[in-house]
Design a protein around this nucleic acid. Structure first.
Lengths: 140, 140, 140, 140
DNA sequence: TTTT
DNA sequence: TTTT
Protein backbone atom coordinates (compact mmCIF):
# COMPACT_ATOMS: atom_id res chain seq x y z
CA UNK A 1 0.00 0.00 0.00
CA UNK A 2 1.11 3.50 -0.65
CA UNK A 3 2.38 5.73 2.07
CA UNK A 4 3.44 9.35 2.25
CA UNK A 5 7.01 10.57 2.26
CA UNK A 6 7.10 14.33 2.08
CA UNK A 7 9.61 16.97 3.05
CA UNK A 8 8.99 20.70 3.12
CA UNK A 9 11.94 23.01 3.56
CA UNK A 10 12.51 26.74 3.47
CA UNK A 11 16.13 27.71 3.65
CA UNK A 12 19.18 29.17 1.97
CA UNK A 13 21.49 27.48 -0.48
CA UNK A 14 24.93 26.90 1.00
CA UNK A 15 26.53 26.70 -2.45
CA UNK A 16 25.63 27.05 -6.08
CA UNK A 17 24.03 23.90 -7.46
CA UNK A 18 26.47 21.36 -8.81
CA UNK A 19 25.23 19.99 -12.11
CA UNK A 20 26.15 16.66 -13.66
CA UNK A 21 25.08 15.05 -16.89
CA UNK A 22 24.81 11.30 -16.60
CA UNK A 23 25.20 8.84 -19.42
CA UNK A 24 21.98 8.88 -21.35
CA UNK A 25 21.66 12.62 -21.04
CA UNK A 26 19.98 12.76 -17.64
CA UNK A 27 20.76 15.91 -15.67
CA UNK A 28 21.21 15.85 -11.90
CA UNK A 29 21.76 18.87 -9.72
CA UNK A 30 22.56 18.98 -6.05
CA UNK A 31 23.31 21.52 -3.37
CA UNK A 32 23.33 21.87 0.40
CA UNK A 33 20.43 23.77 1.94
CA UNK A 34 20.50 25.32 5.40
CA UNK A 35 17.39 25.60 7.53
CA UNK A 36 17.96 27.64 10.66
CA UNK A 37 15.95 27.61 13.79
CA UNK A 38 16.51 29.93 16.69
CA UNK A 39 15.28 29.56 20.21
CA UNK A 40 16.00 30.81 23.71
CA UNK A 41 18.30 28.79 25.90
CA UNK A 42 19.11 30.09 29.38
CA UNK A 43 18.02 33.53 28.32
CA UNK A 44 20.23 33.63 25.25
CA UNK A 45 19.26 33.42 21.63
CA UNK A 46 20.70 30.25 20.15
CA UNK A 47 20.68 29.47 16.47
CA UNK A 48 20.81 25.94 15.23
CA UNK A 49 21.33 25.17 11.59
CA UNK A 50 20.47 21.93 9.91
CA UNK A 51 22.01 21.06 6.56
CA UNK A 52 20.16 19.09 3.94
CA UNK A 53 21.44 17.42 0.79
CA UNK A 54 19.11 18.45 -1.99
CA UNK A 55 19.04 16.47 -5.23
CA UNK A 56 17.08 17.39 -8.34
CA UNK A 57 16.60 15.38 -11.50
CA UNK A 58 16.03 16.13 -15.17
CA UNK A 59 14.02 19.22 -15.97
CA UNK A 60 13.95 20.34 -12.37
CA UNK A 61 17.76 20.09 -12.24
CA UNK A 62 17.99 22.31 -15.27
CA UNK A 63 15.66 24.96 -13.93
CA UNK A 64 17.48 24.87 -10.59
CA UNK A 65 20.85 25.34 -12.25
CA UNK A 66 19.53 28.44 -13.96
CA UNK A 67 17.78 30.18 -11.12
CA UNK A 68 19.22 28.98 -7.85
CA UNK A 69 22.47 30.31 -6.53
CA UNK A 70 24.33 30.33 -3.25
CA UNK A 71 22.50 32.30 -0.60
CA UNK A 72 19.06 32.33 -2.21
CA UNK A 73 16.00 31.64 -0.08
CA UNK A 74 14.01 28.79 -1.50
CA UNK A 75 10.98 26.64 -0.68
CA UNK A 76 11.58 22.99 -1.52
CA UNK A 77 9.18 20.11 -1.54
CA UNK A 78 10.40 16.60 -2.00
CA UNK A 79 10.87 13.20 -0.49
CA UNK A 80 13.45 11.46 1.65
CA UNK A 81 15.69 8.86 0.14
CA UNK A 82 18.52 7.06 1.90
CA UNK A 83 21.16 5.62 -0.37
CA UNK A 84 24.09 3.40 0.38
CA UNK A 85 27.45 3.82 -1.27
CA UNK A 86 31.02 2.68 -0.73
CA UNK A 87 33.62 5.23 0.18
CA UNK A 88 37.23 5.10 -1.03
CA UNK A 89 38.09 2.50 1.60
CA UNK A 90 35.20 0.31 0.44
CA UNK A 91 33.27 1.01 3.61
CA UNK A 92 29.53 0.96 3.16
CA UNK A 93 27.96 4.28 4.06
CA UNK A 94 24.52 5.84 4.15
CA UNK A 95 23.39 9.27 3.06
CA UNK A 96 19.93 10.65 3.35
CA UNK A 97 18.95 13.11 0.66
CA UNK A 98 15.93 15.18 -0.14
CA UNK A 99 14.89 14.46 -3.70
CA UNK A 100 13.16 17.65 -4.77
CA UNK A 101 9.87 17.39 -6.59
CA UNK A 102 9.15 21.07 -6.73
CA UNK A 103 10.73 24.35 -5.67
CA UNK A 104 9.87 28.01 -5.47
CA UNK A 105 12.16 30.97 -5.05
CA UNK A 106 11.16 33.16 -2.15
CA UNK A 107 12.22 36.65 -1.31
CA UNK A 108 11.89 40.05 -2.73
CA UNK A 109 11.45 41.25 -6.19
CA UNK A 110 15.01 42.51 -6.11
CA UNK A 111 16.10 38.92 -5.72
CA UNK A 112 14.49 38.03 -8.99
CA UNK A 113 15.56 40.88 -11.20
CA UNK A 114 18.63 42.46 -12.64
CA UNK A 115 19.82 45.36 -10.50
CA UNK A 116 18.05 48.66 -11.04
CA UNK A 117 19.96 51.41 -12.87
CA UNK A 118 22.82 52.63 -10.73
CA UNK A 119 21.57 56.22 -10.54
CA UNK A 120 18.17 55.30 -9.19
CA UNK A 121 19.38 52.77 -6.68
CA UNK A 122 23.14 52.69 -6.32
CA UNK A 123 23.61 49.07 -5.71
CA UNK A 124 26.44 48.44 -8.07
CA UNK A 125 29.09 47.67 -5.47
CA UNK A 126 26.85 45.37 -3.61
CA UNK A 127 25.91 43.52 -6.73
CA UNK A 128 29.48 42.85 -7.73
CA UNK A 129 29.31 39.89 -5.43
CA UNK A 130 27.34 38.34 -8.22
CA UNK A 131 25.13 36.38 -5.92
CA UNK A 132 22.07 38.45 -6.14
CA UNK A 133 20.36 38.51 -9.45
CA UNK A 134 18.92 36.63 -12.29
CA UNK A 135 18.72 37.80 -15.83
CA UNK A 136 16.12 36.97 -18.36
CA UNK A 137 12.72 35.47 -18.15
CA UNK A 138 12.04 33.85 -14.87
CA UNK A 139 9.43 31.18 -15.13
CA UNK A 140 7.97 31.51 -11.66
CA UNK B 1 16.47 34.12 10.01
CA UNK B 2 14.21 31.25 10.66
CA UNK B 3 13.62 28.60 8.07
CA UNK B 4 11.31 25.63 7.77
CA UNK B 5 12.31 22.02 8.27
CA UNK B 6 9.28 19.81 8.12
CA UNK B 7 8.71 16.17 7.35
CA UNK B 8 5.35 14.49 6.84
CA UNK B 9 5.20 10.73 6.71
CA UNK B 10 2.45 8.14 6.57
CA UNK B 11 3.69 4.62 6.94
CA UNK B 12 3.86 1.46 9.00
CA UNK B 13 6.11 0.77 11.95
CA UNK B 14 8.73 -1.84 11.13
CA UNK B 15 9.17 -2.73 14.81
CA UNK B 16 7.73 -1.86 18.17
CA UNK B 17 9.18 1.37 19.55
CA UNK B 18 12.38 0.98 21.51
CA UNK B 19 12.24 3.08 24.66
CA UNK B 20 15.19 4.37 26.65
CA UNK B 21 15.34 6.47 29.79
CA UNK B 22 18.29 8.81 29.79
CA UNK B 23 20.01 10.17 32.84
CA UNK B 24 17.85 12.92 34.20
CA UNK B 25 14.70 11.00 33.48
CA UNK B 26 14.25 12.00 29.85
CA UNK B 27 12.46 9.38 27.76
CA UNK B 28 13.42 8.71 24.15
CA UNK B 29 11.66 6.32 21.84
CA UNK B 30 12.66 5.26 18.36
CA UNK B 31 11.49 2.95 15.63
CA UNK B 32 11.85 2.39 11.92
CA UNK B 33 8.98 3.50 9.72
CA UNK B 34 8.36 2.25 6.20
CA UNK B 35 6.78 4.43 3.56
CA UNK B 36 5.97 2.55 0.40
CA UNK B 37 5.43 3.94 -3.02
CA UNK B 38 4.32 1.90 -5.95
CA UNK B 39 4.60 2.81 -9.58
CA UNK B 40 4.61 1.21 -12.99
CA UNK B 41 7.92 0.29 -14.56
CA UNK B 42 7.91 -1.36 -17.95
CA UNK B 43 4.32 -2.34 -17.46
CA UNK B 44 4.89 -3.92 -14.06
CA UNK B 45 3.83 -2.75 -10.67
CA UNK B 46 6.96 -2.01 -8.65
CA UNK B 47 6.88 -1.25 -4.96
CA UNK B 48 9.67 0.76 -3.41
CA UNK B 49 9.97 1.08 0.31
CA UNK B 50 11.85 3.80 2.09
CA UNK B 51 12.83 3.34 5.72
CA UNK B 52 12.98 6.24 8.15
CA UNK B 53 14.51 6.45 11.61
CA UNK B 54 11.90 8.02 13.83
CA UNK B 55 12.90 9.53 17.17
CA UNK B 56 10.53 10.86 19.80
CA UNK B 57 11.33 12.71 23.00
CA UNK B 58 9.78 13.05 26.44
CA UNK B 59 6.00 12.98 26.58
CA UNK B 60 5.69 12.08 22.93
CA UNK B 61 7.99 9.11 23.50
CA UNK B 62 5.78 7.94 26.29
CA UNK B 63 2.58 8.21 24.32
CA UNK B 64 4.24 6.45 21.39
CA UNK B 65 5.39 3.58 23.58
CA UNK B 66 1.80 3.09 24.69
CA UNK B 67 -0.04 3.24 21.41
CA UNK B 68 2.35 2.42 18.62
CA UNK B 69 3.26 -1.13 17.76
CA UNK B 70 4.80 -2.96 14.86
CA UNK B 71 2.67 -2.83 11.76
CA UNK B 72 0.48 0.12 12.79
CA UNK B 73 -0.26 2.82 10.24
CA UNK B 74 0.75 6.21 11.53
CA UNK B 75 0.96 9.82 10.38
CA UNK B 76 4.12 11.50 11.63
CA UNK B 77 5.12 15.12 11.49
CA UNK B 78 8.56 16.17 12.49
CA UNK B 79 11.85 17.60 11.38
CA UNK B 80 15.07 16.31 9.91
CA UNK B 81 18.16 16.10 12.00
CA UNK B 82 21.50 14.68 10.94
CA UNK B 83 23.76 13.54 13.76
CA UNK B 84 27.31 12.35 13.71
CA UNK B 85 28.55 9.53 15.85
CA UNK B 86 31.53 7.23 16.05
CA UNK B 87 31.04 3.58 15.36
CA UNK B 88 32.93 0.79 17.18
CA UNK B 89 35.98 1.34 14.97
CA UNK B 90 35.98 5.06 15.81
CA UNK B 91 34.87 5.95 12.31
CA UNK B 92 32.77 9.08 12.11
CA UNK B 93 29.36 8.36 10.69
CA UNK B 94 26.20 10.26 9.87
CA UNK B 95 22.59 9.33 10.45
CA UNK B 96 19.60 11.33 9.44
CA UNK B 97 16.60 10.97 11.68
CA UNK B 98 13.10 12.32 11.76
CA UNK B 99 12.51 13.91 15.13
CA UNK B 100 8.77 13.58 15.60
CA UNK B 101 6.84 16.59 16.81
CA UNK B 102 3.43 15.07 16.50
CA UNK B 103 1.83 11.82 15.43
CA UNK B 104 -1.59 10.38 14.76
CA UNK B 105 -2.66 6.80 14.48
CA UNK B 106 -4.49 6.10 11.26
CA UNK B 107 -6.64 3.20 10.27
CA UNK B 108 -9.84 1.75 11.44
CA UNK B 109 -11.42 1.95 14.79
CA UNK B 110 -10.68 -1.74 15.15
CA UNK B 111 -7.01 -0.84 15.02
CA UNK B 112 -7.37 1.24 18.14
CA UNK B 113 -9.20 -1.23 20.30
CA UNK B 114 -8.52 -4.61 21.67
CA UNK B 115 -10.21 -7.00 19.33
CA UNK B 116 -13.58 -8.06 20.63
CA UNK B 117 -14.13 -11.82 20.80
CA UNK B 118 -15.43 -12.82 17.42
CA UNK B 119 -18.48 -14.54 18.81
CA UNK B 120 -19.43 -11.61 21.00
CA UNK B 121 -19.14 -8.93 18.36
CA UNK B 122 -19.35 -10.17 14.83
CA UNK B 123 -18.03 -7.45 12.60
CA UNK B 124 -21.26 -6.84 10.76
CA UNK B 125 -23.18 -6.07 13.92
CA UNK B 126 -20.40 -4.08 15.39
CA UNK B 127 -20.35 -1.79 12.42
CA UNK B 128 -24.05 -1.26 12.62
CA UNK B 129 -23.53 0.52 15.90
CA UNK B 130 -22.80 3.54 13.79
CA UNK B 131 -19.73 4.59 15.68
CA UNK B 132 -17.40 3.67 12.96
CA UNK B 133 -18.57 5.32 9.84
CA UNK B 134 -19.38 8.60 8.40
CA UNK B 135 -23.11 8.88 8.10
CA UNK B 136 -25.28 11.56 9.45
CA UNK B 137 -25.14 15.24 8.96
CA UNK B 138 -22.92 16.12 6.13
CA UNK B 139 -23.27 19.79 5.45
CA UNK B 140 -22.96 19.64 1.66
CA UNK C 1 6.62 36.41 -6.61
CA UNK C 2 5.41 32.94 -6.10
CA UNK C 3 3.96 31.81 -2.84
CA UNK C 4 2.89 28.48 -1.39
CA UNK C 5 -0.69 27.32 -1.02
CA UNK C 6 -0.75 23.75 0.19
CA UNK C 7 -3.29 21.63 2.01
CA UNK C 8 -2.67 18.19 3.45
CA UNK C 9 -5.64 16.17 4.64
CA UNK C 10 -6.17 12.67 5.89
CA UNK C 11 -9.79 11.77 6.34
CA UNK C 12 -12.77 9.72 5.25
CA UNK C 13 -15.04 10.39 2.29
CA UNK C 14 -18.50 11.44 3.38
CA UNK C 15 -20.02 10.32 0.07
CA UNK C 16 -19.02 8.65 -3.13
CA UNK C 17 -17.41 11.10 -5.54
CA UNK C 18 -19.81 12.95 -7.78
CA UNK C 19 -18.49 13.03 -11.32
CA UNK C 20 -19.42 15.54 -14.00
CA UNK C 21 -18.26 15.87 -17.58
CA UNK C 22 -18.02 19.46 -18.68
CA UNK C 23 -18.36 20.71 -22.19
CA UNK C 24 -15.11 20.01 -23.92
CA UNK C 25 -14.75 16.66 -22.25
CA UNK C 26 -13.16 17.80 -19.02
CA UNK C 27 -13.96 15.58 -16.05
CA UNK C 28 -14.51 17.00 -12.56
CA UNK C 29 -15.11 15.00 -9.45
CA UNK C 30 -16.01 16.23 -6.00
CA UNK C 31 -16.82 14.85 -2.60
CA UNK C 32 -16.93 15.88 1.03
CA UNK C 33 -14.08 14.73 3.22
CA UNK C 34 -14.21 14.56 7.01
CA UNK C 35 -11.16 15.12 9.15
CA UNK C 36 -11.76 14.37 12.78
CA UNK C 37 -9.81 15.58 15.72
CA UNK C 38 -10.39 14.43 19.23
CA UNK C 39 -9.27 16.14 22.38
CA UNK C 40 -10.08 16.26 26.06
CA UNK C 41 -12.47 18.88 27.32
CA UNK C 42 -13.34 18.95 31.01
CA UNK C 43 -12.15 15.41 31.33
CA UNK C 44 -14.25 14.11 28.46
CA UNK C 45 -13.18 12.94 25.07
CA UNK C 46 -14.66 15.30 22.48
CA UNK C 47 -14.55 14.63 18.78
CA UNK C 48 -14.71 17.50 16.36
CA UNK C 49 -15.18 16.89 12.69
CA UNK C 50 -14.30 19.31 9.98
CA UNK C 51 -15.79 18.91 6.51
CA UNK C 52 -13.87 19.83 3.38
CA UNK C 53 -15.09 20.22 -0.19
CA UNK C 54 -12.67 18.29 -2.35
CA UNK C 55 -12.52 18.93 -6.08
CA UNK C 56 -10.48 16.97 -8.60
CA UNK C 57 -9.91 17.69 -12.26
CA UNK C 58 -9.27 15.65 -15.38
CA UNK C 59 -7.21 12.51 -14.96
CA UNK C 60 -7.23 12.79 -11.20
CA UNK C 61 -11.03 12.98 -11.25
CA UNK C 62 -11.16 9.81 -13.26
CA UNK C 63 -8.84 7.90 -10.98
CA UNK C 64 -10.77 9.15 -7.96
CA UNK C 65 -14.07 8.01 -9.41
CA UNK C 66 -12.62 4.53 -9.80
CA UNK C 67 -10.96 4.03 -6.46
CA UNK C 68 -12.57 6.31 -3.93
CA UNK C 69 -15.85 5.50 -2.27
CA UNK C 70 -17.77 6.64 0.75
CA UNK C 71 -16.01 5.82 3.97
CA UNK C 72 -12.53 5.26 2.53
CA UNK C 73 -9.54 6.73 4.31
CA UNK C 74 -7.54 8.93 1.98
CA UNK C 75 -4.55 11.26 2.05
CA UNK C 76 -5.14 14.34 -0.08
CA UNK C 77 -2.74 17.04 -1.09
CA UNK C 78 -3.97 20.10 -2.85
CA UNK C 79 -4.49 23.82 -2.68
CA UNK C 80 -7.12 26.18 -1.40
CA UNK C 81 -9.35 28.02 -3.79
CA UNK C 82 -12.22 30.29 -2.88
CA UNK C 83 -14.84 30.76 -5.58
CA UNK C 84 -17.81 33.03 -5.73
CA UNK C 85 -21.12 31.98 -7.17
CA UNK C 86 -24.71 33.16 -7.14
CA UNK C 87 -27.30 31.05 -5.42
CA UNK C 88 -30.88 30.66 -6.66
CA UNK C 89 -31.83 34.03 -5.17
CA UNK C 90 -28.95 35.70 -7.00
CA UNK C 91 -27.09 36.25 -3.76
CA UNK C 92 -23.33 36.22 -4.13
CA UNK C 93 -21.75 33.48 -2.06
CA UNK C 94 -18.31 32.12 -1.34
CA UNK C 95 -17.12 28.55 -1.09
CA UNK C 96 -13.65 27.44 -0.25
CA UNK C 97 -12.59 24.20 -1.83
CA UNK C 98 -9.53 22.03 -1.76
CA UNK C 99 -8.42 21.42 -5.31
CA UNK C 100 -6.65 18.08 -5.10
CA UNK C 101 -3.30 17.72 -6.80
CA UNK C 102 -2.57 14.26 -5.58
CA UNK C 103 -4.16 11.59 -3.43
CA UNK C 104 -3.30 8.26 -1.89
CA UNK C 105 -5.59 5.63 -0.47
CA UNK C 106 -4.64 4.68 3.05
CA UNK C 107 -5.66 1.72 5.10
CA UNK C 108 -5.19 -1.94 4.87
CA UNK C 109 -4.52 -4.10 1.92
CA UNK C 110 -7.94 -5.58 2.45
CA UNK C 111 -9.35 -2.16 1.69
CA UNK C 112 -7.82 -2.28 -1.77
CA UNK C 113 -8.62 -5.75 -2.88
CA UNK C 114 -11.46 -8.15 -3.10
CA UNK C 115 -10.91 -10.64 -0.33
CA UNK C 116 -8.96 -13.64 -1.58
CA UNK C 117 -10.50 -17.05 -0.98
CA UNK C 118 -9.19 -18.34 2.32
CA UNK C 119 -7.75 -21.46 0.74
CA UNK C 120 -5.80 -19.47 -1.82
CA UNK C 121 -4.24 -17.12 0.67
CA UNK C 122 -3.59 -18.73 4.02
CA UNK C 123 -2.93 -15.66 6.08
CA UNK C 124 -2.48 -17.31 9.41
CA UNK C 125 0.59 -19.20 8.31
CA UNK C 126 2.08 -16.27 6.59
CA UNK C 127 1.65 -14.10 9.61
CA UNK C 128 3.22 -16.61 11.92
CA UNK C 129 6.46 -16.36 10.04
CA UNK C 130 6.79 -12.66 10.38
CA UNK C 131 7.93 -12.15 13.92
CA UNK C 132 10.21 -9.23 13.63
CA UNK C 133 10.65 -7.44 10.41
CA UNK C 134 9.27 -6.36 7.16
CA UNK C 135 11.27 -8.07 4.49
CA UNK C 136 10.09 -9.66 1.36
CA UNK C 137 6.35 -9.85 1.39
CA UNK C 138 5.03 -6.85 3.16
CA UNK C 139 1.52 -7.53 4.30
CA UNK C 140 0.22 -4.01 3.56
CA UNK D 1 -10.50 8.29 14.64
CA UNK D 2 -8.14 11.14 14.21
CA UNK D 3 -7.43 12.61 10.85
CA UNK D 4 -5.11 15.28 9.52
CA UNK D 5 -6.13 18.81 8.64
CA UNK D 6 -3.09 20.84 7.75
CA UNK D 7 -2.50 23.98 5.73
CA UNK D 8 0.87 25.36 4.74
CA UNK D 9 1.03 28.82 3.24
CA UNK D 10 3.76 31.20 2.21
CA UNK D 11 2.47 34.61 1.23
CA UNK D 12 2.21 38.30 1.97
CA UNK D 13 -0.12 40.01 4.41
CA UNK D 14 -2.74 42.09 2.65
CA UNK D 15 -3.28 44.24 5.75
CA UNK D 16 -1.95 44.70 9.23
CA UNK D 17 -3.40 42.17 11.65
CA UNK D 18 -6.65 43.21 13.27
CA UNK D 19 -6.57 42.42 16.96
CA UNK D 20 -9.58 41.89 19.23
CA UNK D 21 -9.78 41.08 22.91
CA UNK D 22 -12.72 38.87 23.73
CA UNK D 23 -14.51 38.70 27.03
CA UNK D 24 -12.36 36.65 29.32
CA UNK D 25 -9.20 38.22 28.01
CA UNK D 26 -8.65 35.98 25.01
CA UNK D 27 -6.83 37.68 22.15
CA UNK D 28 -7.70 36.98 18.52
CA UNK D 29 -5.88 38.38 15.53
CA UNK D 30 -6.79 38.05 11.89
CA UNK D 31 -5.55 39.22 8.54
CA UNK D 32 -5.83 38.38 4.86
CA UNK D 33 -2.89 36.57 3.30
CA UNK D 34 -2.19 36.45 -0.41
CA UNK D 35 -0.52 33.48 -2.06
CA UNK D 36 0.35 34.11 -5.66
CA UNK D 37 1.00 31.59 -8.33
CA UNK D 38 2.14 32.45 -11.81
CA UNK D 39 2.00 30.28 -14.87
CA UNK D 40 2.09 30.56 -18.64
CA UNK D 41 -1.16 30.76 -20.50
CA UNK D 42 -1.09 31.10 -24.27
CA UNK D 43 2.48 32.29 -24.07
CA UNK D 44 1.78 34.99 -21.50
CA UNK D 45 2.69 35.12 -17.87
CA UNK D 46 -0.47 35.07 -15.80
CA UNK D 47 -0.54 35.65 -12.09
CA UNK D 48 -3.30 34.29 -9.97
CA UNK D 49 -3.69 35.33 -6.38
CA UNK D 50 -5.58 33.43 -3.76
CA UNK D 51 -6.67 35.19 -0.57
CA UNK D 52 -6.84 33.39 2.74
CA UNK D 53 -8.45 34.45 6.02
CA UNK D 54 -5.89 33.85 8.70
CA UNK D 55 -6.97 33.68 12.34
CA UNK D 56 -4.65 33.44 15.33
CA UNK D 57 -5.55 32.87 18.94
CA UNK D 58 -4.08 33.82 22.32
CA UNK D 59 -0.31 33.98 22.50
CA UNK D 60 0.09 33.51 18.80
CA UNK D 61 -2.26 36.44 18.18
CA UNK D 62 -0.14 38.60 20.41
CA UNK D 63 3.12 37.69 18.75
CA UNK D 64 1.53 38.20 15.33
CA UNK D 65 0.26 41.63 16.28
CA UNK D 66 3.78 42.63 17.24
CA UNK D 67 5.74 41.30 14.31
CA UNK D 68 3.48 40.96 11.34
CA UNK D 69 2.55 43.92 9.21
CA UNK D 70 1.03 44.52 5.84
CA UNK D 71 3.26 43.31 3.05
CA UNK D 72 5.44 40.97 5.09
CA UNK D 73 6.31 37.54 3.70
CA UNK D 74 5.32 34.85 6.14
CA UNK D 75 5.16 31.06 6.41
CA UNK D 76 1.98 29.93 8.12
CA UNK D 77 0.99 26.50 9.29
CA UNK D 78 -2.48 25.84 10.51
CA UNK D 79 -5.73 24.05 9.94
CA UNK D 80 -8.93 24.67 8.02
CA UNK D 81 -12.08 25.57 9.84
CA UNK D 82 -15.39 26.44 8.25
CA UNK D 83 -17.71 28.49 10.42
CA UNK D 84 -21.27 29.52 9.91
CA UNK D 85 -22.58 32.92 10.85
CA UNK D 86 -25.60 35.07 10.12
CA UNK D 87 -25.13 38.23 8.16
CA UNK D 88 -27.09 41.43 8.81
CA UNK D 89 -30.08 40.06 6.91
CA UNK D 90 -30.06 36.91 9.07
CA UNK D 91 -28.87 34.82 6.16
CA UNK D 92 -26.72 31.88 7.15
CA UNK D 93 -23.30 32.07 5.59
CA UNK D 94 -20.10 30.04 5.58
CA UNK D 95 -16.53 31.21 5.83
CA UNK D 96 -13.48 29.04 5.67
CA UNK D 97 -10.53 30.25 7.68
CA UNK D 98 -7.02 29.08 8.33
CA UNK D 99 -6.51 28.86 12.06
CA UNK D 100 -2.78 29.39 12.45
CA UNK D 101 -0.85 27.08 14.74
CA UNK D 102 2.55 28.42 13.95
CA UNK D 103 4.17 31.09 11.81
CA UNK D 104 7.60 32.20 10.73
CA UNK D 105 8.66 35.45 9.17
CA UNK D 106 10.59 34.94 5.98
CA UNK D 107 12.76 37.36 4.10
CA UNK D 108 15.94 39.17 4.63
CA UNK D 109 17.66 40.39 7.70
CA UNK D 110 16.66 43.92 6.81
CA UNK D 111 13.07 42.81 7.23
CA UNK D 112 13.71 41.90 10.83
CA UNK D 113 15.61 44.89 12.13
CA UNK D 114 14.92 48.41 13.14
CA UNK D 115 16.03 50.91 10.55
CA UNK D 116 19.50 52.29 11.09
CA UNK D 117 19.72 55.53 13.11
CA UNK D 118 17.85 58.30 11.34
CA UNK D 119 20.88 60.57 11.02
CA UNK D 120 22.96 57.86 9.41
CA UNK D 121 20.30 56.53 7.14
CA UNK D 122 16.98 58.34 7.15
CA UNK D 123 14.23 55.83 6.68
CA UNK D 124 12.88 57.27 3.49
CA UNK D 125 16.17 57.04 1.68
CA UNK D 126 17.31 53.83 3.19
CA UNK D 127 14.26 51.74 2.66
CA UNK D 128 12.91 53.28 -0.49
CA UNK D 129 9.74 51.23 -0.19
CA UNK D 130 9.27 52.26 3.42
CA UNK D 131 6.94 49.39 4.13
CA UNK D 132 9.36 46.98 5.41
CA UNK D 133 10.55 47.05 8.99
CA UNK D 134 9.91 46.06 12.53
CA UNK D 135 11.03 47.78 15.68
CA UNK D 136 12.18 46.18 18.86
CA UNK D 137 13.59 42.84 19.80
CA UNK D 138 12.37 40.23 17.46
CA UNK D 139 12.53 36.73 18.81
CA UNK D 140 13.21 34.94 15.54
C1' DT E 1 -6.04 43.64 0.21
C1' DT E 2 -0.19 41.45 -0.70
C1' DT E 3 3.83 40.42 -3.50
C1' DT E 4 6.55 39.59 -7.91
C1' DT F 1 28.44 25.66 3.42
C1' DT F 2 23.54 29.57 3.96
C1' DT F 3 20.88 33.10 6.28
C1' DT F 4 19.36 36.10 10.31
Amino acid sequence: MSGINKVILVGHLGKDPEVRHLDGGVTVASFPLATSESYNKDGKRVEQTEWHNIVLWRGLAEVASKYLTKGKLVYIEGKLRTRTFEDREKVKKYVTEVVAENFTLLGRKSDFESPAPAAAAPKAEHDFSGTNDINGDIPF
